[in-house]
Design a protein around this nucleic acid. Structure first.
Lengths: 193, 193
DNA sequence: CGCAATTGCAAGCAACCACTTGCAGTCAGG
DNA sequence: CCTGACTGCAAGTGGTTGCTTGCAATTGCG
């Protein structure tokens, strides 16, 4: 109904599929069910549209923040990780495209990744609190562990439909394995039980 | 000197920078210092050239295989990981582009990733042997640990120039942290010492 | 009703795209 | 010297690109 919204939505979809150069104003207009001229009347240029469109979806579907005080670390981390994994899968094409477009349009990737980077801070904060509470060992870099968990989950998610898995694995199993390894590496008390 | 080689080299560079649609035959010919017509006489089409070019660099600069029998696990894994990290950084643009191009050209990403996937098998084999030798604990999925190490290193490498690091970190420090965490998660004997 | 904002439509613009054709120049091998 | 392989150059094909212009139709609001 809302022309502007339809254009933003269509622009994101086309951009995720075909990249900047593949995203022609005609294609966007077609997918939005709108005349091409209307696109220019609303946004002025293809560049302005795509930038607005990418910004409008950045941070969508990110998992909720972790609790202030850790109680069941394993359950909480698995829940958070599953959310992040789902986010990566849902926006896989868009994330991949934004990363590749970094050379020509350096503004897009930071916008796309910003939510994830902030989420990392949240995990570090959570783990720091867990360490203060004596729930994990005092050794090991929490920043490195967080980065490791995040990188693993995100890359697994954005290559989910690309990389063939010899053993069929559900997101739950994959994420569960990753979290267990991270907890063990941090010396979580009774991590594997 | 060799026209064909120059075209392949130029095609990879332009493709990594500008993606499939940005890689015009004129740009390739210019960078190769060759007439555009010569390109078509050699490869027939833009598609054939790019595919040949991507295939010609796939697997370049991959780290050497791990030894059959683990001795110093930490040193060996760090060496291997540094090699993989350097590979990811060196071919970051090309890897990012190939991943993004998966929607339109599904053949490129598998070619680009094939070497890394084979390398993962090698790591699993190495860790399995280490476990048989009693160098790491008997619990924990070696496949998951390998995937975790690989994903972390690769994503760290291909976003090395994109994601701002609040704390400046050298590849050696980053990789060292990751390997230490993995070893601890696998219960490597005296991993941290 | 009357006015203004929004939209669709048809047409066109110059620039660029992959790719082709024809011709002339160079250079090594017989 | 002659031939064949390789190359450069100029020109042109039909198609697509981002973007503009002019005009008619619709809609909501006072």
């Amino acid at each position: 109904m809302d022309t502007r919204e339809a254009l933003l939505e269509a622009a994101v979809e086309v951009f995720a599929d075909l990249g900047w150069r593949g995203t022609t104003t005609r294609r966007i207009a077609d997918r939005a069910g709108v005349n091409e001229v209307t696109l220019f009347r609303h946004f002025g240029s293809k560049e302005a549209l795509i930038e607005a469109a990418v910004a409008s979806v950045a941070g969508r579907d990110l998992p909720p923040r972790l609790p202030v005080d850790p109680s069941d670390i394993r359950a909480e981390l698995i829940g958070w990780s599953l959310g992040m994994h789902a986010h990566a899968i849902r926006h896989a094409k868009m994330i991949r495209t934004s990363l590749a477009e970094f050379e020509e349009h350096p503004g897009l990737a930071p916008v796309t990744c910003d939510g994830a980077i902030q989420a990392m801070d949240d995990v570090v904060r959570y783990l720091t609190r867990a360490r203060a509470l004596g729930l994990i060992a005092t050794e090991g870099s929490l920043e490195a562990a967080t980065m490791m968990l995040m990188n693993t989950i995100v890359l697994d998610g954005i290559t989910w439909d690309i990389i063939p898995r010899r053993v069929p694995v559900t997101p739950g199993e994959a994420v569960g394995n990753f979290v267990d390894l991270i907890l063990r590496s941090l010396g979580a008390t009774r991590a594997a039980e």
